[in-house]
Structures are given as C-alpha cells and as structure tokens.
Amino acid sequence: MTRPSVRAPRELPIVLLLAGVITMLCVFVPAFRSADNLKAVGENAAYIGIMALGEGFVIIGAGLDLSVGSIMAMSSCTMAVALQAGIAWPVAVPLGMAVGAVAGSINGLLITRRSLPPILTTLATLLLFRHGISLATHAKAFTQFPDGFKQVGAGWIPFLLFVALTVIAMVGLNRSRVGRWTLAIGGSEQSARLSGVPVNRVKLLAYAISGITAAIGGWIVMAFNDNAQSSIGQGFELDVIAACVVGGIRITGGDGSLGGAALGALLIALLRNALILTGRPIDQYGLFTGAVILSAALLEGWRAQRKSRKLQAEGGVA
C-alpha cells in the first residue's frame, strides 16, 4: 500500500527565502519601506517576472529561449518607431506584441520544423534579432513617448499587471489542455507524441508566448525609463532564466510552476534593490545571482537524488 506522500511544494524554498529577504530588508534597511522604492522594486520584478512566465513555459516544455532580451529590443524599437511615426499608442503596442510573437514563432518554427537544438537556435536568433534591429534603427535612441503609453510603467501598474499575468499563466499551465501538454512534452517528448499530443504546435506556441512576454517586458521598461534603444534588454535572458531556475523550474523540463518563476523574479528584483540600497556597487549583484542559481540547482539535484533513492527503495519492497 502506498501512502499518499506529503510532499513539500516546489515553491517552498523560494517562499522561505523571499520571506527571509523581505524581513531582513524591512528591519535593517529603512529606505526599503519607502513607497517610491517599493514601486521601483515592483517595476523591476514586473518585467523580469513577465518575461520569466514566457520563458518558464518554454523551459517546462524542455526548451530554452536565449533570445528574449533581443526580442525585447526588437519589439521595443518597433513600438518606438511606430510612436514616432505618429501612430496612436493603442495601435503601436499590439504591433510590438505582434513583432514579439513573430520573432518567437521564428524560434519555434526553426526548432520544431527543422528540429534544431533550442539552445543553438535561440543563440543564433539572439545575435540576429539584436544586431538586425540595431542595423535597422542605426542604434538610435527614442524618447518622449505619449503619456498614455507610459501609463504601464507608472506607480503600481507594472506590478499589478505582473500579478494578473502570473495568475492567468498559472491557471493556463495547470488547468488548460495546452498547459498539461507542455508539462507532458517536458517530461518525455516521445511519450507525449505517442499519446497524440500535437508536440510541434504546443512547442511553437510556447516560443510565441515567450516572444510576446518579452515584448510586454519591453513595453514596461521603455515606459518606465521613457527611453528605448536597440541595446535595451542586453543580458536580460540570464536574469530571466535565473528567475525560472530559482523558482524551482527544472531546467531540463517537465516540472515546475510559473508561480515559482514569478517568485524567483521577485527575489532577483529584491536582491538587486538590496544591493543598491546598501550602497554596494551593482556589479556585485552577479555574485548573488550566481550563488542563488547554484543553490537552487544544488537543491534540485538533491531532490532528484532523494526521489530516485525513494523510488528504488519502493521498487525493492515490491
């Protein structure tokens, strides 16, 4: 008889870590509690987190998207050019999202149709998208966006948008058919295919979603800074992947939750903020991110080992 095992939720370590960090910040760093600072943290968490939702979808489906930073630049610059050309912002924004979706679909199509390895494909498109948009805009800086467009970067709006999208994404992954299919593909693509899952279409969708979330992230960043340039979002892919890994998404796919990815993004934003507030150079932030990613990976490795040992023990009894 197998007992229903009481398994700690995957997000437990990150929740504890977050609680610890927030408590420490509240107690020891008075500047942390100011409304302006909290809003800045919210904005930071929002763009990393929203992009991590899309990236999480891809990683859970056993893929990887290194091009999110470049897609962000491409759609941001598209929106900026459209706005400069006098196009109303409610038209320019969907245009930017569409560019993100198309860029993501290019990744998806290359990976599914031509069965190229995700890491190499998105590495190539990282170069292509970034330098392509840089060539197209001559690395020009855009600014002075209309007020309506900038609303999304003001006050608590980015954070609220982030929370709303997280809820939608969590429901989408756990309750919808496509979400379950993604988990199945991440677990074993072969089994998923044999069970009749339209593997290619689901993967394509995941990359397209990742492109769209990168575009939304770009919108928030350019609205917050009132600035867009082809170098926007350089290196963001690492923060975004870090948020996913820290949030308990298994890097090889098949396991993890998007809520975890969102919490991971929050942790990364908080750590960055803590460094700024305590007057340390922002460069040290990489050390913390590195340490956090490693501990998350070690924890995951330990979990996997314990699980396989447990399975072996159970097999031995039976």
Partner: peptide, 14 residues
C-alpha cells in the same frame, strides 16, 4: 548550462 550560467554571473561580478 545552469552551473556555468551561475559562474558566469559570479565571475563577471568578481
């Protein structure tokens, strides 16, 4: 990829 991602961040900061 995870390990070298972490050391990449750490070395760059270092």
């Amino acid at each position: 990829i995870v390990v070298t991602l972490a050391t990449m961040a750490a070395c760059r900061a270092g």
